[in-house]
Design a protein around this nucleic acid. Structure first.
Lengths: 123, 123
DNA sequence: ACAACAGTTGAACAACTGTTCAACTATAGG
DNA sequence: CCTATAGTTGAACAGTTGTTCAACTGTTGT
């Protein structure tokens, strides 16, 4: 994933009164690596296919084929996105014969989505 | 923003036992438009520059120039991202002379970020 | 009125992302 | 052993995204 917060020379005048503001702002900034981890995490939720998968398997473990049918997509496309969800530990899976059943890895996922829905519905 | 959950013909066999699963999965799916709104919302958080801005102005309203300096970026880049944040109502602003001060629009923003941080730190 | 600075904007470009396609592995059943 | 189906994977392609650059608006101070 791409990350390019560059070390750049400031181009506007740092008036003395604002120097303090900048110091304060910097104090609120987490480590850059943490910022990257966080944005990477949100990126995973920033795709309707992946969200659709998460909603579909919420409470009901499903195999790839069925998820694909539920969303009206190809197995391949779903599998690619499941890989992303797996890598970010948002889903876990278990094999049963030819099938691979996916389910939400924990309740945190639900929490985050709900918070976001709350915000959207307020506006 | 791009959205292409297509209506696609299923390509795998819908064995009878799974028909029920698919029905259940579909029941969990929100309206497509809601899915799109939700993923669009998360996309906004899925960029380290925008997150950096949100952290910087958390508790301390700042002008564009100072945000740019805090993050080590150009005013232009910051302004472009502030536009996105504005359009999604995550920040509000007030003009003071030549300066435009930006601040978080409400506490919801903080909540969502905190939830995500919790999840990340658990892994 | 003019110069200087804050901020915004649109076009252009490079980098990234998601879907498709084809090829592949693996398991079940005859 | 052979075939059919479930699932994964890599390459390729089109669409999207973020930064840069240059040009622009608007406000302050002289």
């Amino acid at each position: 994933m791409n990350h390019n917060l560059q070390e750049h020379l400031p181009e506007c005048e740092a008036h003395e009164e604002h120097a303090e503001l900048i110091e304060k702002g910097r104090a609120h900034l987490p480590e850059l690596t943490e910022l990257y981890d966080l944005s990477d995490f949100f990126k995973v939720f920033g795709d309707s296919t992946r969200l659709g998968i998460l909603f579909a398997i919420d409470g009901t473990p499903m195999c790839v084929c069925d998820i694909a049918q539920t969303l009206g997509m190809t197995k391949s496309a779903v599998s690619h996105q499941l890989k992303v969800l797996r890598q970010n530990r948002l889903v876990k899976y278990s094999k049963v014969g030819k099938n691979v059943f996916y389910e939400l890895s924990d309740d945190h996922v639900r929490d985050i989505i709900e918070k976001a829905l709350e915000h959207i519905e307020e506006n």
